[in-house]
Write a protein that binds this DNA or RNA. Structure first.
Lengths: 204, 204, 204, 204
DNA sequence: TATGAATGAGCCTTCATTCAT
DNA sequence: GATGAATGAAGGCTCATTCAT
């Protein structure tokens, strides 16, 4: 299929973009620099992406989308809400720990962004929120949650905590292990939700 | 000493900047637009701030700094850790609820930002983190906290949750009450920390 | 010798060019768009024309050249100067009425043009001017013209009038008949030249 | 008035533009080159004109507009249709003879042009057409014209003839006198219109 | 102090042209 | 011959910053 090669090249460009964005931030990164990083001419980028803004949208859709494609089924494969939440935490942290540049781009450089970009990003983010919401609703249905819990608020706490932890890790000069935080974080958050069960704290 | 008049004018400029940043974001806001909003000529801004980036640093230092000047003593005036944490939450949400434009700027437009800006912002942010850390350490010293709690992690959860809640409120088209979330959020977070005491849930 | 097939393909490209030029003008028309219109790949065009500018030169040479090849003999076949001039007018207007896109390209989009293009166009145009000049000289030799008439000026008036009439027709939203203007125009122009004879105003 | 200085500078830029356009044509002239010619920085041009296209529109509006402001009353001050037409011719040729660069820009480089530019140019051109139409209508009302003459067609012949004469003069390497053509041209055109009276062929 | 005209570096984007397949 | 991916030069335009008034 012709689009194999195309997808290949798109990935090559996006990888260049991650590197350059991580180094200089979105607004200070020129298309020329990204092209150089990707080993291409500047004009070539425009054969694959219509505008600079599309790069960052594609980045988000591609990387977070792929993540969700892979992990959403895995999370739902579990039934125990506690394990699900622990896995949510673990996968989230593991995802970013793999690629520090990507973490910087997602956590730092993707934040102030034009409405157009926002529009491109929102659907994928919403998909992630939906995963969390689903976990929480299911947990409540099974009676494993504090019945008074405001689920939307709970999701914001969950996501906000994860987000902040990854952000401060991405900003830190010194690289420490994100995954080491899975268990302590799980303990805090399961308590926050009033989770009854307890996930085994060995890897799931 | 910076004269009264000077500080007055700086505030006038910063207020213009908040309005314009909130409307268009930092990178799409021109000095000319800020000057127009502030009722000044573009050149005048440079009599008060050396660069565009200084505006955003000053914004942060001024507004968050003032906030801390006022609330840090208030928080420490309390002794009960539970009340302190509830107040932390309440003040935080109240602060942003007062000024939606400021919330947009702080939560959205201040996020992708050059290292220089980061450098200017960090000290104030650290000061806020210190307030939280201090509350937590004190709570632990009083034996009111889960003794196994990783305090730094706890602080990130706390801050991350607050941050996410304000961010999603700032982004929302529809304006809802932030303060209405104080109590449910407090319940979640106090449980997260393993707080023994319970704050009265009437306003403090 | 340029093969039949080659000429065929050149014509195919030029037809695409006319369509695209008529729609967007020369400078806003990309080779890619012309190729698309002609059902070819962009690169293919360069097998037939060395540069974009050559397209417009070829257009002119081909279409105006063919016109002259056909009509020059027809005009000279006539002997009566009055009929000749009437035919000149009629053929000119008929030529453009046939193809509105071509008219737009010739009358509008071919006008601001690089020296190189000018150089390519001039010979064909001169050939047309020569036809007119020849008619006028012959008419004078036959004593049918105002003897004081400056023939070069007369030619400019003739051509200028025709050109303006076609141009305003090409620009007009509403399509009206050009040929309907042959007779009234002939009356004006024959008077302008001081033509003695009178052409029959039925079709020649 | 502050706009004195502004108008001064606009004129300075437009003069630079005429020079550069005349030399290289509109599409091959860069803003940078125009700025250089005008002794300004490139950015400065954008303080006076929003886009490159506005330069050419302003050129047209300014120069042809000023011409009409001056000559429309002068033409109408005359009553004899023959004199009016002779003056029309004389003023037209005199206008361009004064400024060969302007003639090149108007006659050559202003012809293929975006719809936007066309839109800006049309009103002024229409104003000129109206002047001619008015002369012709008035002449007819006075019974000085061939009663069968199609006035719109006559106007096109008049304008087309003048336009072609100036165009070929503007293109010519060798500079000859345009004004020397006033009388012979008047003779041709007054005959074309079937004008009864005759204008004195000394200057009016 | 205040102004706002002027500067000019910088960057996205287009597109004619080339060339390996 | 035909393709269309790749190139890279070129240029319009923005805007932070300066400075003469």
């Amino acid at each position: 299929m012709a689009s194999k090669a195309r997808e290949e090249k798109e990935r090559q460009i996006l990888d260049g973009a991650i590197t350059v964005f991580a180094r200089s931030g979105y607004h200070k990164s020129s298309i020329a620099a990204i092209a150089r990083e990707a080993g291409l001419a500047a004009g070539t980028i425009y054969l694959y992406f219509r505008q600079k803004e599309d790069l960052i949208i594609a980045l988000f859709q591609r990387y977070l989308g792929d993540y969700l494609d892979e992990y959403e089924p895995r999370i739902h494969a579990e039934v125990d809400p506690a394990v699900r939440i622990r896995n949510l935490i673990r996968y989230h942290l593991a995802f970013f720990e793999t690629d520090h540049d990507l973490a910087k781009v997602f956590q730092i450089h993707l934040r102030e962004v034009s409405p157009l970009i926002r529009e491109g990003i929102t659907p994928v983010l919403v998909r992630y929120f939906d995963v969390i919401d689903h976990i929480l609703q299911d947990a409540r249905a099974r009676g494993e949650l504090d019945p008074e819990l405001d689920l939307r608020l709970a999701r914001k706490v969950l996501f906000g905590a994860l987000d902040e932890i990854v952000t401060s890790w991405a900003r830190a000069e010194h690289r420490y292990s994100l995954l080491a935080q899975v268990d302590p974080l799980y303990r805090i958050l399961s308590r926050a939700l009033g989770l009854k069960g307890e996930a085994e704290c060995a890897t799931g």
